[in-house]
Amino acid sequence: MRHLVLTSLAILAAGTATAAPLSTVGSVEVTISPELQKKAADELGLKDVDRLAAELRRDVTRELERTGVLAGGRLELVLTDVRPNRPTFRQLGNQPSLSHESFGIGGATIDGQAVSVNGEVTPIHFRWYGSDIREAWTKSTWSDANYAFDRFAYRYGRGESYAAR
């Protein structure tokens, strides 16, 4: 009886392991450019920028797994610039004249490269910043940067952002 239960559990575990979907993305790596690192340390806050890099990685991985673009390849992204819509906590602490009600146009710039399974390297450049200050007053601190990440992930996942310059 014990042998039958152990065998059943082993078969069930093996079936579960083979039924799990394989990742369609080899890897998505997001780094922060040295200029943005300095800007984060001096002005924006390191936690905020690290959180944004993690969000970019999550968004891109989700879209690539959904669409299967770059299956088995590697995506190396560099977060080059980000601008908040509202002051970050670090900015509020550094500049007493700012208020959380202050607002501006935000966004992000992403550079990098896609490396396919066969080793072909494709450069990537994506930039999106808000264009209408009248919309900025309704947004949270990183709304435009998050929108830029979503837009990049969506477009890249559908093959629309390869080497866009």
Rank of each mutant, 00 (worst) to 15 (best):
L79W: 09
L79S: 03
V115D: 00
E135K: 08
F89Y: 04
V60K: 09
K47L: 03
S23K: 13
R158D: 07
D48K: 03
Y162E: 07
T141Q: 05
G107N: 04
W142R: 01
E160P: 07
S8C: 14
Q37M: 14
S116E: 05
Y129E: 00
T141V: 10
V121Q: 13
V121R: 13
V78F: 04
D42Y: 14
Y154C: 11
V30G: 05
L56D: 08
Y129K: 00
Q95W: 01
R151T: 10
D144A: 12
T67P: 04
A19I: 14
Y147K: 05
R90T: 11
I11L: 13
V28G: 13
R66E: 02
G112P: 04
Q37S: 14
V82Q: 04
V5N: 13
I32C: 08
A145I: 05
Y162T: 06
I110A: 00
T18K: 11
Y156P: 03
L9H: 11
E160G: 06
Y162W: 06
G68K: 06
A17W: 12
A71Y: 08
G93M: 01
G68D: 09
L77F: 01
D48C: 11
E160Y: 10
R51M: 07
G93S: 03
V60Q: 07
L75H: 04
S8N: 14
R155I: 08
E135L: 11
P87F: 09
E35G: 12
L6H: 13
S140A: 09
T16M: 15
